[in-house]
Design a protein around this nucleic acid. Sequence first.
DNA 1: GTGAAAGCGCTAACAG
DNA 2: CTGTTAGCGCTTTCAC
Lengths: 341, 341
Amino acid sequence: MRKRPVSLKTLAQALSVSMSTVSRALRNHPDISPELTRKVQLLAQELQYSPNPLAMGLLRSQTYTIGVIVPDLVTHFFASIISGIERVANEHGYHIVIRSSYESYQKEKECLADLLKLRVDGIIMCLAQETQEYAHFDALLDAEVPLVFFDRVCRATEVATVVVDNQEAARRITRHFFEGGYRRIAHIAGPASLNITQERIEGYQQALAACGLPFEESLLVHCDLSIASATAATQRLLALPNRPDAIFGVNDTTAFAAMKELKRQGLRIPQDVALVGFTDEFHATVVEPTLTSVMHPTVEIGQEAALLFLEQARAATHPAPRQTILTTQLVVRDSSAPKPA
Amino acid sequence: MRKRPVSLKTLAQALSVSMSTVSRALRNHPDISPELTRKVQLLAQELQYSPNPLAMGLLRSQTYTIGVIVPDLVTHFFASIISGIERVANEHGYHIVIRSSYESYQKEKECLADLLKLRVDGIIMCLAQETQEYAHFDALLDAEVPLVFFDRVCRATEVATVVVDNQEAARRITRHFFEGGYRRIAHIAGPASLNITQERIEGYQQALAACGLPFEESLLVHCDLSIASATAATQRLLALPNRPDAIFGVNDTTAFAAMKELKRQGLRIPQDVALVGFTDEFHATVVEPTLTSVMHPTVEIGQEAALLFLEQARAATHPAPRQTILTTQLVVRDSSAPKPA
DNA sequence: GTGAAAGCGCTAACAG
DNA sequence: CTGTTAGCGCTTTCAC
């Protein structure tokens, strides 16, 4: 059996004073004589005393723990957001407990419930793809538990959110294609229920209109963000009687899958079909041709989310939900080089 | 201010019975009358009672929390291992608290100290690159705190570890090159202090010997696993008067960096220089040429690590440290196609 | 200046 | 069958 770590009691007994004295001495309470204070602190140091957070948690109903729920732990996008959260959280004395919803609505509810049972001080999360009901957040909102959504959000008027300028980014991509001479611009979008999907579609359509291009329903296909589904979506596009000459994928994984499928079908990029991704992972520079992509400030998303959490955690009264919109940047590479005349 | 959640006391008062009765009823203690038990459980359900883990933690000195320390949260390798840990941990009622050491020895010690202060039930970790002193684990070992190392390990006779068959994998790669007709086989290794580096170098040298090839010091270069450093290492190899015709990178990131540099210098892969990576990320299939790589069972590493933790956590007496060795597989792709005669 | 007591939420002897 | 008590580690009145 593991022995219990040194507690205030241990120190108190060793010094033949009361626990409360030790407690005060450790926090430099002015009531305690300087000498005693010094003696207590010295012994504490020596015995490696560290206050038991469980006891403090019980007392204060505060655990300095943030629950983080992501749809998927492995994807670079989420991994680097977690990294951002972790950094800011730790800097402010918080720990993070991570759970994956595996893109499942059911699992998301479970994770949420588990984390609340664990008494986390708040939640930072990204909605699962499946999630289309948002009632499971009622309890949090009622109890004013700090809550922050990032990337995929809902109830944005009630909850703090961190998102990127999806619409603008989609406009920029579409315009970029147009300026490169591409006229049949397709978009492999994500699941229709997600805000990011909708926003990017809107931007795509706005830019088409601005460029004087018609919006063709057949050039807008959906995928569930998996590689298999992105491949299938690409196949649907390429099977069209009048196939697109440019494809804008909802993220880099989608774009990579599309790239693979294009190559498999013997199509040249960008001569036959140009390609742009979204997120800008390191690998965008390694694939051939290098992939034009929208740079997503992933680490900043995480950091900002953590800051929004802290804002709520520290506020005496529940603050109005803040929306943070981070800006993206189009990084042009070979996969979208201007169309040869 | 957030209101406190319902406690046993709440239930007890509502039903005008004592807390202990409620406590027993909730756990179906045979002493409590069936009707009372039912009534209590019903109310608990209704009021969404959930036992306070802080209170339980105080009582039992057990938090059902595992501290996980990785050198880096973003890398696919660690992200998927974390995913494996998370899955098994959650299945067994544990939560994981994640920290990144950022490959720093100092930070690693901090993370460890922080997690212990948090009263985690144990630690699962991968050593930071910088770490070459292992005294900070003494306290854990003394206190018999469950500890599991994965991938990069130390004190393997005292601590449970999960590793892959690095030596065998390196032998297989080297032999694969040899069989493809390559004779000047270089290895971009990791930092010399890491066990994985040493093991892979040993396997590399063994296979060279077995193939009747001399070991040339200049063909063995080190990098710190960063992209920049891998690029520099590649440059050193290519600057040799008699440059290698095959390169075996210590991981995929290294291989990708090498690939990029090879292309930059106008060298063809594999005609001029063949390339093999280690870890087999998805992107190995997207780059051009597709990258031959050693498939690392990352998720399994995480799962196995979690199981080793559970074994220790549940054991009445501290069990002898178990070493798990997982097997890898060489996935052959275009970057190491046989050398044209 | 310092100590005693109560309480955060819970369980486990020990009584009845 | 059920209630009382003590204690896990800590802070905070309230006494002295």
